[in-house]
Simulated assay, not measured.
Amino acid sequence: MSVEQTIWLSDGICGLGPLRSDLAEQYWRWEEAPSSLIGFGRPVPESLQSRTQGLQQQLAGRNIRFTVYDLTDAENPVPSGMTTLQPDNYVRTAEYILVIAPEARGKGLATRATRLTLDFGFHVANVRSIWLKVLAPNKAAVQVYAKAGFKHVGAMRQAGYWRGAVCDELIMDALASEFSGPSVLASAD
Rank of each mutant, 00 (worst) to 15 (best):
I64L: 04
P102G: 06
V78S: 01
P87I: 04
N76D: 04
V99C: 12
G61S: 15
A110I: 07
N89L: 12
D70P: 07
T117S: 15
P77C: 06
L55V: 05
V68R: 00
A101H: 09
L48H: 14
A33F: 14
P34C: 11
M82C: 02
P43N: 15
D88N: 13
L48W: 10
A74V: 09
A94D: 03
F66E: 13
Y69W: 03
V127N: 03
Q56E: 11
G81Q: 05
D70T: 04
N89D: 13
P79D: 06
L55Y: 02
E75Y: 00
T72I: 01
V127R: 08
L116D: 05
P79T: 02
Q86E: 07
N126W: 07
F120V: 10
S47E: 04
G39N: 03
E95V: 02
T93Y: 04
E32N: 14
S50E: 13
Q26S: 15
P34Y: 11
A104Y: 01
Y90H: 11
I100N: 02
L55F: 04
L71Q: 02
L132E: 05
L135N: 13
W28S: 05
L19M: 12
L23K: 06
L59V: 08
G106R: 12
V99P: 03
L16N: 12
I13P: 01
D119W: 07
G39F: 05
E75N: 10
V124Q: 15
I38W: 08
I13W: 00
L118N: 08
T84D: 08
D22G: 12
S36W: 12
Q26T: 07
R128L: 11
H123I: 09
A110R: 07
A110Y: 03
I13T: 12
A104M: 05
Q57L: 11
L71N: 05
L19G: 00
G17W: 09
T84W: 00
N126P: 00
G39R: 04
D73Y: 01
T72Q: 14
V68L: 02
N126S: 09
N126K: 11
A110G: 14
S80H: 01
D119V: 10
G54K: 11
L59D: 10
F66L: 10
F120I: 08
P87M: 13
G17S: 06
P77R: 00
T93Q: 15
Q49R: 10
H123G: 13
R65W: 01
K107Y: 00
N89P: 01
T67W: 01
R105Y: 13
V91F: 14
R42Y: 03
V99S: 13
L48M: 14
Y27G: 07
L85F: 04
D11M: 08
F122L: 13
R29F: 09
E103Y: 14
A104L: 02
G17L: 01
K107A: 06
F122T: 12
N63H: 09
L98W: 11
L59I: 12
R51G: 05
A60T: 09
L135H: 15
D22Y: 13
T111H: 10
T72A: 08
A104T: 06
C14Y: 09
K107W: 00
L135D: 03
T93A: 11
L132H: 02
L135P: 02
L16R: 12
Q86A: 09
G39I: 10
L85P: 00
I130Y: 07
I97V: 10
L118H: 03
S36C: 11
R115W: 15
F120C: 10
R112M: 14
D70V: 03
S35P: 04
S80L: 04
V91Q: 08
T83E: 06
S35A: 12
A24H: 14
Q53M: 12
